[in-house]
């Protein structure tokens, strides 16, 4: 029995994972969400920005990470547009262009934000560090036009924005090491305020920067997205998906505990 349990067919585990995803998706479950301090810090920072401020939102991720990062991008855009904070969207990842432009357009349609006045999407340029450094001197020297090909000089919200001096905050939505690059080049050299929204696997890397104040806030994975939606009182996919993820985590924890009980019982028998 124990041997069978320890050598369980992995297809059974796969079926359990499928059930742990499907059942909470179908049932209306609303688990209580407590908001962590780093998420609240970012929310409060944006809330405190005066109307007409400009922030930069970097979509530095690809489709593999959209499940975690799209909900936080939507929540951030909604908060900014509702607060009349202008948004400059960019990406250091080539795959980020299609996702970034679509997301901004989608939230702009919902909130009535106007292209060129409330937001602009600049798109992608290769050369990560060079793009960050170049924009510190002059954004137009790196992005002569926006993603639609319109010259920056013809975009109303860009008339008074030349470099990071006019940007109140950069939020990096990242699935890799881009946040560290932004901190190294934009925060250290140009003193640009930076916050991040990152996938679950890189949360732990961000904590040294939170402690030093180089990150003024952090949204951590899908849990962070759910926390942000809770703060905005705008439940969306973040809250739905954290409920589902809860059951998958519970399943994995349960499997680990069962596996260890079986392991210890078998080892005692062998002794």
């Amino acid at each position: 029995m124990l041997e069978k349990l320890m050598d369980i067919d992995r297809r059974i585990i796969f079926i359990l994972v499928v059930l742990a995803v499907i059942i909470p998706t179908l049932l209306p479950i609303n688990l209580p969400i407590s908001v962590s301090a780093p998420t609240r810090q970012l929310h409060d920072y944006i809330n405190a920005l005066p109307a007409g401020s400009t922030i930069m939102l970097a979509f530095d991720y690809g489709p593999a990470s959209l499940a975690e990062l799209n909900p936080m991008a939507k929540a951030l855009l909604k908060q900014c547009f509702d607060k009349d904070v202008r948004v400059i969207g960019i990406t250091l990842a080539p795959e980020g262009t299609a996702m970034g432009s679509t997301l901004i357009q989608e939230i702009a349609d919902e909130t009535g934000a106007i292209d060129g006045e409330d937001y602009v999407f600049l798109g992608y340029r290769p050369g990560e560090e060079l793009v960050i450094l170049g924009m510190g001197s002059d954004i137009a020297s790196v992005f002569e036009t926006d993603y639609n090909g319109k010259p920056l000089a013809d975009i109303p919200m860009m008339t008074n924005v030349t470099n990071y001096d006019q940007i109140s905050l950069l939020i990096d939505l990242a699935s890799g090491s881009s946040t560290e690059i932004w901190i190294t080049y934009a925060n250290v050299r140009y003193n640009l305020q930076i916050a991040a929204g990152v996938t679950g696997v890189i949360i732990s890397q961000m904590y040294p920067y939170l402690q030093t104040g180089q990150l003024i806030g952090l949204i951590s994975g899908i849990a962070g997205a759910a926390e942000y939606e809770t703060l905005l009182d705008a439940p969306a996919k973040g809250i739905l998906w954290i409920n589902i993820e809860s059951f998958v985590h519970l399943l994995i924890a349960g499997l680990v505990v069962i596996g260890n009980i079986a392991f210890f019982v078998q080892r005692r028998k062998e002794e």
Binding site: L31, P32, S246, H249, L250, I252
Partner: peptide, 15 residues
């Protein structure tokens, strides 16, 4: 540690 972080990261842990 992994179990605490894994369950502490989702609302069902605190529930």
């Amino acid at each position: 540690t992994a179990l605490i972080v894994m369950l502490g990261n989702v609302p069902i842990g605190d529930l």
